[in-house]
Design a protein around this nucleic acid. Sequence first.
RNA 1: GGGGCAGUAGCUCAGCUGGAUAGAGCAUCGGAUUUCUAAUCCGAGGGUCGGGGGUUCGAGUCCCUCCUGCCCUGCCA
Length: 600
Amino acid sequence: MRLLSHSDSLLFRLPMQNWFDVVKKLDFHALEAAKRANLDTSIFSPDVHPADPRFGDAQINGALPYAKRLKTNPREIARQLVSQLERDTELASVAEISIAGPGFINLRFKSDFFLSWLQAFSTEEDFQASASKIFEGERVVVDYGSPNTAKQMHVGHIRSIVIGESICRLLEFCGADVTRDNHIGDWGTPYGKLFYAYKRHLDESALKEDPLGELERLYKLGSQLANDDDAVLEECREELVKLQSGESDAIALWERVNQLSIDGLTEIYDLLDVHFDHYLGESFYRDQVERVYDELEKAGLAEESEGALVVFHPEHKRYAKQPFIIRKSDGASNYATTDLATMLYRLEHFKATRVIIVTDDRQKDHFEQLDLTTKKWFEKTGRSRPDFRHVMFGKIMGDDGKPIKSRSGDPIRLKDLVYESIDRAYAIVKEKNPHMTEEELRQIATTVGVSAIKYADLSPNRMSNYVFSWEKLLSFEGNTAPYLLYAAARIQSIFRKAGASTKIDESKATAFETEEEMALARKIMEIVGILQSTIETLRPHILCNYLFELAGVFSAFYNADKVIVDDIGIKTRRLILCQRSLLVLKIGLSLLGIKTLDRM
RNA sequence: GGGGCAGUAGCUCAGCUGGAUAGAGCAUCGGAUUUCUAAUCCGAGGGUCGGGGGUUCGAGUCCCUCCUGCCCUGCCA
């Protein structure tokens, strides 16, 4: 029979499940206290925050705005609340309560509360249990990546891929059924020029070697030849007409180019561990544009203006005058048309309850107009209206403050970027681990290099432009993926050294004592709120920031407190901290699309 | 002209619905290693939060105004 530690008593353990989200739980208790104190709960909001460790673990600030509304003394309100909170036996058993300043209520959890919390929530399933309800039953189509075909991807494509993938994983973690759809640019005017050059100047071996590179070369060549010679330009036009009119040879060639393109794209996506369910690009919707014109005209939303078919939104201060052009004056469809058709398809075919599109912020107006138009269209036709979110991001800048370009003035190829990162990672890993096998070196370098690229893109706020620098991207210090991977690898190492698996007899643990133990426990618990705000805002940098802090607090703990010690109580509780730190790092990194390593 | 985003330490950036003395990393300087991975940790210096006004117990955060940069603004995506 195992011994019961004081934190193991049934009385204490039973309610722990409700404490997973500490802020939410405190909010509830504070509101109950407010009722008992006869405060007007239509006005009072507890306003619970995680606190600066100097003051405690959490604070309830609601007394101040409440007193302001009623023009009374905030400290008096706080005093009334505290006297009720102290009568709350569940709360009083886990925390010490005090008043500070003008009426802040500070709570400091008792040491064994941290241990009980960590013991109650110990697996990925435990962490996912509450999150998985957020988007339960939701079908979400996430549209990201979206490069043009027959071209190499460049550095400008990385943010959509990396942010989009992270958002997919976050949504799945929250219980959503996610469809990853790559809305490729596989239709349009460039194909005339490409086909002209393809038929005359194709280098078969180059095409086999590097399909996207060769197709891009051919497009540029065709473009240049057409530019120099009007006769060539005319032939390019004819190629395009053949394609658009569905001539079988042209379609066959287009299909071949498209397949080569997708194969080329997939090579890099595989490297980045990003896998799409569909590649439903612009071409897929080309036969559906008539339906869009018809429905929008019948619904009275679209009108002729300057020869084009457009949608105005009279209620909107800007889009009352700024048209959403859905058919050009030459009769051709455009981006707006296919995006509308895409919305319809996602509703009808995927039964989407939500649609998320991940692009740069220059397309903000376009997607606002798309959303307004879709809402009215679907409403008038009696359809359900999926919730639409445009997840946008800023540009990647060079150190000259302008959008990033390579020295030659061309965009930096994404492939080159990723492989250079892997190569640099390889050199560093090899230097640190001279005796590692070649295979292991390669594998670690790939993970480190790819992670570094991804993390550099995820850690800044996606809304702002960020400055690209090789040094920062590939740095192994500071808020970077390698720093996080290293922290995780060190924890794995502890378990190897301890000869213990991650499953340990946790009942032997004693309550935390050292400052570093407490700080780490506190930090681990913060993951709950962090996941919520990351998901609410769809801003992965919030999670990045947190993981960096967690790794830092862990490292401080690691340096201060030895884990493998003789005292079984101390050793066990420290192993618990290690195991949970590793768990949270793994969950967090996987939600960012980053794999962890056992050693590095 | 209209609209959007941004301006925080020398550099790159955090700062959650307004909360206590504005924080990291890099760089600089000073420490820690017979040790579970030093790819680490601890400490120091470094700020008119673009300027000015306002709202209030309290403003980097909200409102107004001005300055600066970038982006969008009818037939590109």
